[in-house]
Design a protein around this nucleic acid. Structure first.
Lengths: 336, 336
DNA sequence: CGGAAAATAGTTAACGTTCACCTTTTGCCG
DNA sequence: CGGCAAAAGGTGAACGTTAACTATTTTCCG
């Protein structure tokens, strides 16, 4: 995160022009098409732009051209689920007097980093809340006061507190399962590109070890139900776990299906937990023990960090616990 | 929708000032605080503002103040499900050279309409794609070329083609069920505030009547699993349907659960269909027949309409069918 | 090499708002 | 009623860019 420190003015077109020894209009031309310019002046401007790390001020451009290149997308308040995180963030921003622009970054890491810098310098936004991981290098090249907050829950570098806070329900679930007499566990992980998948896996391994339990393995999956089915199918009948911690509800549903296919009863032979509290999972037979995630709160809290970094405003964080284990039929005592 | 017709310039502060017989600076003061003004001049400005329907140009303001009041929210491309519609819309906008700003409208219909006009006039956006219903009155008061496209799938007035196109899978499903020998149907509808719920219900009634089938009723629900459970629980044992069209997957899961609780077999005694193709529903026992909705395509197509209205640009619409019925275990032939 | 057309570059004035500073009016008190 | 402070309002410039012109240089041809 970059604090709102020195609001140094970005270089303007005039300064580039002076450095390159041309008029500002020539720079303007250069910016839009690079055509109709003598190669030598083009090169001089190129050098000046690079030296000053110049990027055009889009607000000024908008003012002159009467075009913003920006479209609004209006969403209903009562919006479907995981736009919920976005909704939470947007609401918090609104509270602090900001509007939110959604930029979905495409392309490779390099292209995304470039786009991010552009965004920060354009003068079109005052801060950036990144739910996607960004290159560390970008943070350093940041302009004036443009704060960037990377939500820990999406951060690829897993810094700090985000990590354990996120995975703590894993600990809670395993401890409870141990109390219920379970000794052999299996974890079906999500796509390990995701910080959340990695942290759940880490918490699983750590907790199983700490409590002296047995892990029959960790299957690296991809969040899909099929990965759950496959994980159960591949198990050695001699060494069946009695409890499975699945990376999310979908994987858990796959695990349950796979277990049934092998003639196992859930929760009689196998307890299963999910993650996300998908609307459907309470109607599964058996209804699924899962983790409810307050996406709205998550979004809100991340946005609050950004707002605070920008203008020091301290708003009320989400009052709800962000993760809550919901116990349902899919977890029962181990067969003795 | 308002076409990009006459790009009449919005009135500026100077014109308001002239009409009110004051200087532009006085108007500027009025705008920000309304304080330190003689009541009489305040009233004159008030009148002028109203007469000209003046709203400040936020781009110009941003330029001067170096503040945009706008935050960016960066999303990963590989984003979880129903940000998918947004993702589709954002991608299409990007293709046409636009960025997308997400505005979640809060408050009552009146407040939202006001906010919408502000947005349109602010010069901060060139068009508005509304996934939320908006008052018809707003459309008329729209400024210059600000196009507003209301996605039919969210439009509260159900105009035109959107309606049947959306509900056609209902027709397809009922026809197929009839072929399988089903004669008695039940529909558990969604929240009828939603156009999609209303159109599915309408299509159900129309198709059942057209094919000479029997409907044991339509239960007006709220998209929740509980409404599905309740609908089944309330049925008269003498007059059980053999097929249920549920408003979405969650309702369907509730229906299946409710049926099991009454000792009914799905699909033996009862065929059930859902809607949305929730990740989990293929792992339900029995796996659920449902409608896959191409949210990305939906978002994309809606955005394309907007882009076209703004600058005439004709981009490639989504190549996929927007709604596809996926047949799974929960549908079988009627018991003879 | 003269001259005109084409290519390239420069100049000035907007865009609509706010800021910093200045002027006028009002209100109040002795 | 004079005088002065406070309140109310006005003036001109500036924000960083592009549009519309104008000026200069280069190119190319006879």
């Amino acid at each position: 995160m970059t604090e709102s420190s020195t609001p140094v003015r970005r270089p303007t077109m005039k300064e580039v022009a002076r450095l390159a020894g041309v008029s500002h209009q020539t720079v303007s031309r250069y910016l839009r098409s690079r055509e109709g310019l003598k190669p030598s002046t083009l090169a001089r401007i190129d050098a000046a732009v690079r030296e000053l790390d110049y990027r055009p001020n889009l607000v000024a451009r908008s003012m002159r051209t009467r075009r913003t290149g920006r479209l609004a997308l209006v969403l209903p308040t009562m919006v479907f689920s995981p736009a919920r995180m976005l909704a939470g963030a947007a609401a918090a921003a609104h509270e602090a007097g900001y509007a939110v622009e959604v930029v979905s970054l495409e392309g490779g890491a390099q292209a995304r980093a470039e786009r991010m810098l552009e965004l920060a310098d354009s003068g079109q936004v005052e801060g950036i809340l990144a739910l996607a991981p960004i290159q560390a290098a970008v943070e350093d090249r940041l302009p004036h006061g443009a704060a960037i907050v990377v939500s820990a829950d999406f951060d690829d570098e897993m810094r700090g507190i985000g990590e354990l806070a996120d995975a703590s329900p894993v600990i809670e679930m395993i401890e409870r399962l141990a109390e219920l007499g379970h000794r052999r566990f299996l974890h079906v992980a999500g796509d390990l590109q995701f910080a959340s998948a990695r942290s759940r896996k880490a918490a699983y391994l750590e907790t199983v070890a700490r409590l002296g339990l047995e892990s029959v393995g960790v299957v690296d999956g991809d969040w899909s139900g099929d990965s759950g089915v496959a994980a159960i199918r591949a198990l050695d009948a001699e060494r069946m776990p009695t409890a499975v911690i699945a990376a999310n509800d979908c994987v858990a549903a796959g695990v349950i299906r796979g277990a049934k296919d092998r003639g196992l009863d859930v929760p009689g032979d196998l307890s299963v937990t999910g993650w996300d509290n998908n609307d459907i999972c309470q109607y599964l037979p058996p209804s699924l023990t899962t983790v409810h995630v307050d996406l709205e709160g998550l979004g809100r809290n991340a946005m609050l960090r950004l707002v605070k970094a920008i203008n020091g405003l301290d708003l009320e964080p989400s009052p709800h616990p962000l993760n809550t284990v919901i116990w349902r039929e899919s977890v029962a005592a181990a067969r003795s």
